[in-house]
Design a protein around this nucleic acid. Structure first.
Lengths: 362, 362
DNA sequence: TTGTAGGCGTTATCAT
DNA sequence: ATGATAACGCCTACAA
């Protein structure tokens, strides 16, 4: 007996123990060398038709599948992409994740998922990302410049998703201009004659939330409108309902319009206005959100909002990342930013035309 | 020069090329053997305090992180768990995924995500699951017995999520009894005097959808009620709106109650009834769904539905799977099923008390 | 086209 | 406690 550590039941052959079937087993059964087997599983390798057939038959008989861990050790490619996402509660992110997963799968890779509750928790995930030897990462969360630097040092392709446009230099990113979106929404509402605004913002550690909020309030200030009542929320439904009440308490009256940091909060705000406060929307109050998540389009809401083109953005992210991965060896490619324009959705929860003097009187 | 393929800039030391830093580098810098380094990264190994400190300092200086692929090659543990999910559109699954990811992360593992459009596509994913050497899998999709057998042959721990209770023997599973849930909903509605039902079912390839539908219609038959109008849907909003119209066309009248295969379809049905057909819900029509996803609880809907306890279910699945993984070597454990009771949510979209004779007259 | 041999970066065994 | 050394399963020159 020369074989080391033969499993106890090897002689009986009853069932093969933990020992997995390897390319050696296949080679033996097919009567070829191990490297021949290896070549058969590499697309575009030079193998004769006859050996290919023999190997494949043997592989099938043994249920052989190449071991990706062993392969990645030598090829330095794991065919895994890290996707880092917070705010699964946000509704926008599940939609984005579904698209990302699909697009990444199309390109022959798989998603290793990293989720977290707070955006601030990214730091603790990073070590794991290094460990798992992913080929690249798509991060939809706030990264500090230092953290981005770590990706560079490790030469790990990185695409940030929805990061602040104004800080996107030097980083490959896919995004909507959230600041501009905030401005746009404020402009449209102001143009319709709304004067007193409320803003229900998102979490402090979310750059997207911050951009939207400052975009809107900057624009309102430019227009010389009264300063809006601003309250903080958590991107969830309850933040919308509480937020509206808080705004009303702050102002001592119902505002003309409320801009919410995302659709879910806008829906909460809307429901509170209609069902708890008995307000007519958009008659007495305009409400608008961001994202155009699916429920915003439901008949009960038909929300006025700004769509982020999730599909194209996910596709762009996957495309950009795989390009970076394929080009990793050799020339440094310069970072690019793919910005998408938010699309205004003219729903039914915001009045968008100025009131005629007559109707003001009425 | 003996070193093979020394990178061109190795002499300059300017920046280290693709060559990654390994435990050897750390060992060299710390002045210890490579195996000493390895031990330092294995919790509970025997290392002296002084070498540990030296190694860790060197590791930090070099940004060294153990390579998980190399490790898994020998330990036979990748610390990855495959999660297979379809129907990301369903709203229920994103919520489940978020919980699963969280629970799995707590146990020191990560989720390798496999998504698909149709449940029938599971087959094509399986080969990838074998490839990636995951430690186990949680599958929330329809698996054939043969496919389950393949997991067993490969001794890959498997937990099925929300598979048919009546076929759960021999498979580790976490589920709600969907058939019973369907019966329960039918019973409650029938008890309130509803006689003519409509059912908007889910996709044909979804066992969950099938169970709910047959549970409801079996119960209606037992009660001797007129046979319901049954239409098929895709678990999405549009299926709910179209479904209701189709049911009305089939029956030639508005049914007393509609049971929908999930909440999103129920919401579609509800919106169609109220906003397109001008029906009073629950005055003229009762509508109920399944899952208690977040929007079902929003004020505009307050849907009558059956909650699946996502949190406990995800926790059970993660727990069960990790237990299986830890017990993999040695004794076969017998398969277990963890069934959770659906919880009736007494919303405001279904009339649940019988009409008094007086009000019938009125 | 095919086989031989070395190496990818760890962990695990066994002396010391 | 520490250091050699042999796996782990595969890919890839290189030689034949």
């Amino acid at each position: 007996m020369i074989k080391t550590k033969t499993p106890p039941d090897a002689a009986t052959g009853q069932h093969k123990q933990a020992r997995r079937v390897t390319s050696y087993d296949v080679a033996m059964l097919a009567g070829v060398s191990q490297s021949a087997v290896s070549r058969c599983f590499k697309p575009g390798a030079s193998v004769s038709k006859s050996t290919y057939a023999r190997v494949m038959k043997a592989a099938e008989g043994l249920d052989y599948i190449p071991n990706a861990a062993a392969r990645s050790l030598i090829t330095r490619r794991s065919n895994m992409v890290a996707v880092v996402i917070s705010q699964m509660a946000n509704l926008y992110y599940p939609e984005a994740l579904a698209e990302l997963s699909h697009q990444i799968a199309r390109r022959g890779k798989r998603v290793l998922l990293f989720t977290m509750q707070q955006e601030g928790d990214v730091g603790r995930l990073l070590a794991d990302i290094w460990q798992y030897q992913v080929d690249g990462a798509i991060v939809a969360a706030a990264l500090t410049d230092e953290q981005i630097g770590e990706f560079e040092r490790r030469r790990l392709p990185l695409v940030v998703f929805n990061r602040n446009l104004r800080r996107s230099d030097g980083v490959n990113s896919v995004l909507c201009d959230q600041y501009e979106a905030g401005r746009l929404l404020a402009s449209r509402l102001a143009a319709a004659g709304h004067r007193q605004f409320g803003i229900i913002g998102g979490p402090a550690d979310s750059p997207v939330a911050t951009e939207r909020r400052t975009g809107a309030s900057d624009r309102l200030r430019e227009l010389g409108l009264p300063s809006p009542a601003v309250v903080a929320g958590q991107f969830d439904y309850a933040s919308g309902t509480h937020g509206l009440r808080e705004i009303i308490a702050q102002l001592g009256r119902v505002p003309d319009a409320v801009i919410c940091g995302n659709d879910v909060m806008a829906i909460g705000c809307l429901d509170c206005a209609r069902h708890e406060l008995g307000l007519d929307v958009p008659g007495q109050l305009s409400v608008a959100g961001f994202d155009a998540v699916e429920p915003s389009n439901w008949l009960s809401y038909n929300l006025t909002t700004l769509r982020q083109p999730i599909g194209p953005m996910a596709q762009a992210a996957a495309e950009l990342l795989t390009a970076l991965i394929d080009a990793r060896e050799g020339h440094e490619t310069t970072a690019q930013t793919r910005a998408f324009a938010p699309q205004f959705i003219d729903g039914a929860t915001a009045r968008l035309v100025a009131l005629a003097p007559a109707s003001l009187a009425a």
